[in-house]
Design a protein around this nucleic acid. Structure first.
Lengths: 200, 200
DNA sequence: ACCTGAACACCGTTCAAGT
DNA sequence: ACCTGAACACCGTTCAAGT
């Protein structure tokens, strides 16, 4: 259950080069947040304080940069989830985590969706991170099942699928409508809950 | 319950101009299907047998062309749904329609998703078509509720939200995995069904 | 009233030259 | 070993000229 290294192999890398990679990721996050995914690589390089070409040595393509950023933020989300799971004891953890992830997604302007539909599993880094996420969800489901909160037969991929619908609404440009998101989340919660209660 | 005209106002339009608009939409559908949404406007114009500039008189921007195409295909899907609803009598109609829409989405290479997240409600044509779709879903839900198949309190926007998750899986580049789609659809069906049955 | 090919502008990507 | 600004290529968009 080890969290993966952020950059694969970082062998004989000069200190400034490593710093540049970090700066580029941070700058990309800022620019995408402000301008949307159409934000230009020129501005990203400028904010990172490097030349365009340096960006393209670190990330062979703009898409690769987006994928790396996505993987980076997925890892953060997974780390938070592991912490939530470790601290939780006698109360359910999955739906609480779902709310947290929705908030992260909204901050990122739907980065996951924009990148994911094109390149989700093609990139090995994303594939590995995705596998980690599925494992985390499986553990959360098992945890909540032992408390009798989630019914049997629900899988991590089921949860992902249901959550994608909520994400879609939550990240829609018009649609941050918090009430609708809350309502949909409840509906998803009911879909995987053990008893037909209505109140939770 | 009138289906909207395809092009809003078509007042004093020369015959060849009207034909060009149709050809451009058809060519765009072909190119996007073959090359994905990155397909160039040059190729679209060429296949339609017109110059680039003609494309831009009919659609002020490439995005506008995608939106118009999306609206066009949404209208077809709505028309099919109305027919399904009219023919159905003593059996449920919503989930059957869902399967049909999924098939349409897969043909379009996820056009809806790619366009929708950016521009869903901003375009008035899309907003109107979306309203028509919601009305159709409401009628389908009411129909199935009278048969005791769908529980009370389920709204069209709930169904849309749940379906978006299924669409996302169904249209993911890797993921046409038919078994997973079928499984997810069942789960969604259970989420809105009246009784906890398990078999349907 | 509508069409067109050529030109423009922008942005992702590469390259020759620097340290 | 790494960096850079200038050049390249591509594609969405516009324009001057045609019918």
């Amino acid at each position: 259950m080890v969290v993966q290294q952020d950059s694969g192999e970082a062998r004989h890398q000069r200190a400034d080069a490593a710093r540049n990679r970090e700066r580029l990721l941070a700058a990309a996050a800022d620019v995408f947040r402000e301008r949307g995914l159409g934000g230009g690589v020129g501005e990203i390089a400028e904010r990172a304080g490097v030349g365009r070409a340096t960006l393209f040595r670190n990330f062979p393509t703009k898409q690769a940069l987006m994928v790396a950023l996505l993987a980076h933020e997925m890892r953060q989300a997974i780390a938070q989830g592991r912490q939530t799971l470790a601290e939780a004891d006698d109360h359910g953890v999955l739906m609480q985590y779902a709310e947290r992830v929705i908030a992260l997604q909204q901050e990122n302007r739907g980065l996951l969706q924009a990148v994911a539909w094109d390149a989700y599993m093609e990139d090995p880094e994303i594939a590995a991170t995705h596998a980690d996420l599925m494992a985390l969800l499986d553990e959360m489901i098992a945890h909540d099942q032992q408390l009798g909160l989630i019914r049997n037969g629900i899988s991590a991929s089921d949860v992902m699928m249901l959550m994608k619908g909520v994400f879609a609404v939550a990240c829609s440009p018009l649609g941050g409508d918090a009430a609708a998101v809350e309502r949909h989340l409840q509906l998803v919660g009911q879909a995987i809950a053990t008893a037909r209660d209505g109140s939770r």
